[in-house]
Design a protein around this nucleic acid. Structure first.
Lengths: 173, 173
DNA sequence: AGCCATTTACTGTTCGAACAAGTACATCCC
DNA sequence: GGGATGTACTTGTTCGAACAGTAAATGGCT
């Protein structure tokens, strides 16, 4: 299919790269390559994280909350929201589920009656090693196909993308 | 920065690269740098996409369905599932919402009574340019802080990560 | 022909993500 | 002091993501 031989002279096949943004893309193949790449990586990473977390009985994002609590100790929900980058409403429910699961306890702050302090329970310590193992497995899954140099490059690239996105998000255009 | 002159012979400062995987990480700073980087990029990208899509009245992921339909024409839900990489249950509901919004129509296949064919409506064509504009804005937001060389590098790195993740996901470990 | 695994789509359910709206408390400023 | 403003958290709601279970149709295999 797709005519293997055509004598036509100009073919923008492999790399025109200098996409002038006005000329129509040759095919619809490459309109937004970066978006597609990010979407696919994000989806696969989320899927794999979900599969690994399932074994330890956590849902995606709950592990981030627990890791933050284990690392930094008891703190306000707002602090967790800032860390997760999520919103307060989501955090309220996530915390409630973690509380019901017995991994987290909540107590009101004495100094500021608006805030509730969230802290990891002793029972949660049993989880900690498992979650850290999951985290390392996930990291390994990403990096095992890459040379150390490629890994370093990847981090740089991701940081660069993050900066771009952060700027665009704050601007809100 | 980074001490232009130092007489010391071996310094693993910038690129020791050969990360031995056994030695403990010096701080807890760098345990899962790749994971964190991917999470942050994924979150920001999703957030920005959501903000942009909101203006055209679509929810995240609906635009991917519509783009697939515009590009490839009427097709079965299973094909859309394969494209989105999501699952059939999610697709059923997404399609229903797009149908209620008037962007999509469903008709039963005559040859296979199990399948329903999904096709974009004429009304959806009004959306198409807007969605493509959103898609380009999103792409621009990611790439505008990067040189063309960095963009090419980013695509390579993301493809590499995707391959690693795809392998890990299929293995299911 | 008849059985059976597979495919296709749907529903039920739980959970995170996000927006909106509302309550309780805190702080600032007049 | 008292109103205006801001912060911390909660609830309501819609939507995607994912797992489980179901039902119908298909196709292969004996």
């Amino acid at each position: 299919m797709s005519q293997p031989e055509n004598p036509d002279a100009r073919r923008p096949t492999t790399a025109d790269t200098t996409g002038p943004a006005n000329v129509r893309m040759p095919d619809s193949v490459e309109a937004g390559a970066m978006n597609h790449a990010i979407f696919r990586v994000a989806r696969l990473h989320r899927m794999l994280a979900g599969q690994l977390l399932r074994r330890v009985g956590l849902h995606p994002s709950q592990e981030l909350v627990m890791m933050q609590l284990w690392d930094r100790g008891p703190q306000r929900q707002t602090d967790l929201v800032r860390f997760l980058g999520s919103d307060a409403a989501t955090m309220t429910r996530t915390i409630r589920r973690l509380e019901n699961a017995g991994f987290v306890r909540r107590r009101p702050s004495t100094t500021d009656k608006r805030v509730t302090i969230v802290e990891p329970t002793a029972a949660s310590n049993a989880l900690r090693n498992e979650v850290e193992q999951v985290w390392m497995d996930l990291e390994t899954s990403v990096t095992e196909g890459m040379t150390p140099a490629q890994q370093a490059e990847a981090i740089e690239v991701l940081d660069l993308i993050e900066k771009s996105l952060a700027r665009a998000t704050s601007q809100d255009i």
